[in-house]
Amino acid sequence: MERRTFLRATVAGAGAVAFSGGLWQNAALAAPAQNAAGPYGPLQAADANGIQLPAGFTSRVVARSRQTVPGTSYTWHDAPDGGACFADGTGWIYVSNSEVGGGAGGASALRFDSGGNVTSAYRLLGGTNTNCAGGATPWNTWLSCEEVSNGQVWETYPFGGTAVARPAMGRFTHEAAAADPVRKVIYMTEDKSDGRFYRFVPSTWGDLSSGTLQVLVAGSATSGSFSWANVPDPDGSPTATRYQVPGAKVFNGGEGCYYADDTVWFTTKGDNRVWQLDLAGGTYELAYDDNLVNPGPAPLTGVDNVTGSSFGDLYVAEDGGNMEICVITPDDTISVFLRINGQSGSEITGPAFNPAGDRLYFSSQRGTSGSSSGGITYCVTGPFRT
C-alpha cells in the first residue's frame, strides 16, 4: 500500500491550536496498523481514579457533570463529548461539547494557567441539540457539531464572542470536523450507518458563513483514488445530503476526524475502522481495521474520537470496547495507552493535548453512573513523546 511521510514541526505562538497537526515526524506509515508493545510500556494497576496507565503517567479529575468546577462558580455540563485545546498566553483552554438533546446541549470551556490549574470555566454555547464532536480552526474558534438529522455546525469563540450557526456547512447528522489550512477546507464526518465524508470550501478562508459543501466520491473498495463533488442542496431537504450525489462513498458511522500534514484520518464505528486520506496524492486506505489485526485480538473496538500528538502518534478513544484510548504510532503499530475500569456504561470522548503536549484531556461521558449526569473530565500528565 501507499506509505505516508510526516513532517515534524514545532507549535509556536499564543494562537497555536494544539489539535491542528503540522506536527509529524519523518516516518513511514504502512496501513493497516498491527499489534505491538506500546511505546510507554505495559499498563500498571488502576490508580485512585480507576485508570490504568503506563509507568510515569498520572491522572486527575478536572470537572464532573452537575458539579461546580473546583476553583470556579461554574457547573460543568452533562455528557461531555468532543473537545480541543487552544493556546492562551502561558496557559491554555480546553473546550468540551455536551451531547444532550432537547435543546439542552452546547459547549463549555475550562481555562488553565501555565501550571495546569483551572482559573475559570464558562459557557460557549447553549440551547442546541446533541453536540457530539467538532473541531478547532486555525483562527481559534471551536466548531461544535449537532448529531441530529438536520444538525448544524455552530462556530463558538473560546476567547469571547457569541456562537453562530453555519448552515452553509450542511444540515445533516454532524459528528466531527477538522481544518486543513493548506487546502483551506474543513472536513466533516456524518454519524449514520450509510453516512458520507464531506468537506466545506469557504468562499473566504476564515469565514464560514458561505461556501461550497462537497462529498467524497470513490469506489466501494477499502483503498483507491477519490475525488470531490458538490452537494447540490446543503440544507438536506427534502433529500438528505448523503443521497444527493451518485457515487458518494458510504462510510459506516463516521466519528472522529483529525488533520495533519496532507493527511486526514477519520473513524467509522460501524466497522471499527480508521481511514486515512492522502490529500496530496488523492488516494485513501485503511489505517486500522479490527478484522485485519493479525495476530489478534484487536485492541481497538468501538472507535470514536481521535487526536494526534506532536510526535506523530494517533490517539483513538473507544465508545464501549474496554473503555480504552489506543495509540497508533507512525511506524504503524497499535497498542493500549490507557484503560478506565468500572465504567462499562460509558464511553471515552474529547481527547486533546495541551499546547506543550505533556497533558492529555478527555472525558468519560457517563462516568460510573452510566447516565449523562455522571460525566467526568480527566487530565493525564506524563512523559508523552514529543
Rank of each mutant, 00 (worst) to 15 (best):
R3D: 07
R8A: 14
W24S: 15
Q25E: 12
A27H: 13
A31M: 11
A31S: 14
A36D: 14
A37S: 15
P39I: 07
A46T: 03
D47Q: 05
D47C: 03
A48I: 06
Q52I: 00
G56D: 06
R64Y: 00
R64V: 14
S65I: 07
T68S: 07
T75D: 00
T75H: 02
H77G: 13
A79P: 00
A79T: 09
G83R: 03
A84D: 12
A84L: 00
Y94R: 09
G101P: 06
G103F: 10
R111T: 12
F112T: 09
D113S: 04
L125M: 09
A133K: 04
G135V: 07
T137C: 05
T137V: 08
P138K: 11
N140P: 00
W142C: 00
C145E: 13
E155H: 08
G161V: 10
T162F: 01
T162H: 01
R171E: 12
P181H: 08
R183F: 07
R183H: 15
I186C: 00
T189R: 04
G195F: 09
Y198C: 06
V201R: 15
V215F: 05
T222E: 12
S225E: 07
V231T: 10
V231D: 02
D233W: 00
D235Q: 13
G236M: 02
S237L: 11
P238T: 13
V245Q: 06
P246H: 02
G247Y: 06
G247K: 05
K249P: 04
G254M: 05
F266S: 02
A280F: 02
G281Q: 07
Y284R: 10
E285G: 15
L286G: 10
N291K: 15
N291W: 04
N294H: 11
P295K: 05
P297L: 11
A298Y: 11
L300I: 03
D304T: 08
D304C: 09
N305F: 02
S309Q: 05
S310L: 14
V316A: 06
G321W: 10
G321H: 07
M323C: 10
I328Q: 07
P330V: 10
I334K: 00
S335I: 04
S335N: 12
F337S: 08
L338F: 11
Q343L: 01
T349D: 02
G350K: 02
P355E: 03
G357F: 08
Y361Q: 02
F362M: 02
F362Y: 14
S364E: 01
Q365A: 11
R366Y: 15
G374T: 09
I376Y: 04
I376S: 03
P383I: 08
F384C: 11
